Simulated scan of single mutants.
Amino acid sequence: MGGFVAGPDCCGGLCNMDFRQADLCVMTWLLGYVDPSDPHFVAAVLAITFNPLFWNVVARWEQKTHKLSKAFGSPYLACYSLGGAILLLNILRSHCFTQAMLSQPKMESLDNPTAHRVALMLLGVGSTLVLSSFLALGFTGTFLGDYFGILKEARVTTFPFSVLDNPMYWGSTANYLGWALMPFTAEIYRQKASQSYRRR
């Protein structure tokens, strides 16, 4: 199935990892079983590596210098701008990840309805955790507002934070696992339908 690059212990296991890197670890693990010479793989790895590096460096630079807030004339406007850039980068990362998944051979073990249902369940749980986290935190709470001096009056303890300490990271992890299964199963069923049509 291509060269082996990283295994499931790439981040020391899910239980021991820094939750800020949960989706990074899962995507690296999933992409670790693909052909490293594939240009889709290269693009996905670059996007996965660049995104957290970008927003962490920019946020810490802003916290130390406040230069973004000064340039935009407001910490809120600066935070919204960084958040918009992060969203665009995440769309690009998801696209690169999907293309890397689609360009690889399909696993025969996923050729069943159960794998498809598991993918849907993971996407449902992941999307619920990510969206409810966003609604609870708001835009500035989600997109590094604390580095801009934008703080909430108290720690958020409503759902999903009442259930998990890091719901957005767990949700993001579930989404990438589910999405990795979806391209595989979708392509398998598309190929089956195409073969059945040709036999007629």
Score class of each variant (00 low, 15 high):
residue 118 V to H: 00
residue 119 A to C: 05
residue 120 L to R: 08
residue 120 L to Q: 12
residue 121 M to S: 11
residue 122 L to G: 02
residue 123 L to I: 06
residue 124 G to W: 01
residue 124 G to F: 02
residue 126 G to A: 03
residue 126 G to K: 03
residue 128 T to F: 03
residue 129 L to M: 04
residue 130 V to C: 06
residue 131 L to I: 15
residue 131 L to V: 14
residue 132 S to Q: 04
residue 133 S to Q: 03
residue 134 F to L: 08
residue 135 L to P: 01
residue 136 A to E: 09
residue 137 L to A: 08
residue 137 L to I: 06
residue 138 G to C: 05
residue 138 G to P: 11
residue 140 T to G: 01
residue 140 T to N: 06
residue 140 T to A: 11
residue 141 G to A: 06
residue 141 G to R: 04
residue 142 T to M: 12
residue 143 F to E: 10
residue 147 Y to P: 12
residue 148 F to L: 06
residue 148 F to V: 11
residue 148 F to K: 04
residue 148 F to S: 07
residue 150 I to E: 05
residue 153 E to W: 00
residue 155 R to C: 01
residue 155 R to T: 12
residue 156 V to H: 01
residue 156 V to E: 12
residue 157 T to W: 00
residue 159 F to C: 07
residue 162 S to M: 04
residue 164 L to E: 08
residue 165 D to T: 14
residue 165 D to E: 15
residue 166 N to Y: 13
residue 171 G to E: 13
residue 171 G to H: 09
residue 177 L to H: 11
residue 178 G to W: 09
residue 178 G to E: 13
residue 179 W to E: 12
residue 180 A to T: 14
residue 181 L to A: 07
residue 183 P to F: 00
residue 184 F to I: 14
residue 185 T to H: 03
residue 186 A to K: 03
residue 186 A to F: 05
residue 187 E to T: 13
residue 189 Y to W: 14
residue 190 R to L: 13
residue 191 Q to I: 12
residue 192 K to V: 09
residue 194 S to D: 08
